[in-house]
């Protein structure tokens, strides 16, 4: 633990905003900084103020972590694939006359609603600037997109009366996105 009440309070404020590993690392660093100022002849309280000033405010540090959060980057990448996937699947659905597929209307409505919800969650994760927790919504959004991609591929392969040429692009796009999501999300969520 830190060695001065001001440092303890500072670390506690960080702990409410950031992952435990990051907080442990910051606590070690600011305690080192405090010790250095004490060794230089400052009083413990002066040393605490100096160490905190050197580190930056908890909001500054949180914002820096948010800007480089793996979840934020993952959400941005997934959103960036949206136009390509939408174009491929849109063409596939139109060319194969998707309204003739044997899919109950409520299921299509649920799928569309889920897609809008997933996009909204990813946008939230991608655009936050001050909350690290918000970047972790990328996990929920990524998982949702994984399920939707799988559902879309399954529907195209199993329910479409005939396979149409745009699916030759749409299916690989979805499969590639699913593989990237499976590979990337665990590390993004662990940090």
């Amino acid at each position: 633990m830190a060695s001065h009440q001001l440092i303890d309070d500072y670390v506690n404020r960080l702990a409410r905003r950031l992952p435990a590993d990051a907080v442990d690392e910051l606590a070690d660093g600011i305690t080192d900084t405090w010790h250095q100022h004490v060794a230089a002849g400052r009083s413990p309280t002066q040393a605490a103020h100096a160490a905190i000033a050197e580190f930056g405010t908890p909001q500054q540090i949180t914002d820096a972590f948010v800007a480089q959060a793996p979840g934020r980057r993952a959400a941005r990448l997934l959103l960036a694939t949206g136009p390509v996937a939408a174009a491929c699947w849109g063409a596939s659905l139109i060319v194969s006359r998707a309204w003739t597929w044997p899919i109950p209307h409520p299921a299509a409505v649920v799928f569309g609603s889920a897609l809008l919800l997933v996009v909204a969650v990813l946008v939230l994760a991608a655009t936050g600037r001050h909350s690290y927790r918000r970047t972790r919504l990328a996990g929920v959004g990524g998982l949702g997109l994984l399920v939707l991609d799988a559902a879309m591929v399954a529907a195209a392969l199993l329910l479409a009366p005939t396979l149409v040429w745009p699916m030759a692009a749409a299916v690989p796009v979805s499969l590639a996105r699913m593989m990237w999501t499976i590979r990337s999300l665990p590390s993004a969520l662990a940090s």
Partner: peptide
């Protein structure tokens, strides 16, 4: 640079 902002760069 504020010291605290070096840590996220190291994480990246």
């Amino acid at each position: 640079l504020p010291t605290g902002t070096i840590y996220p760069a190291l994480h990246r």
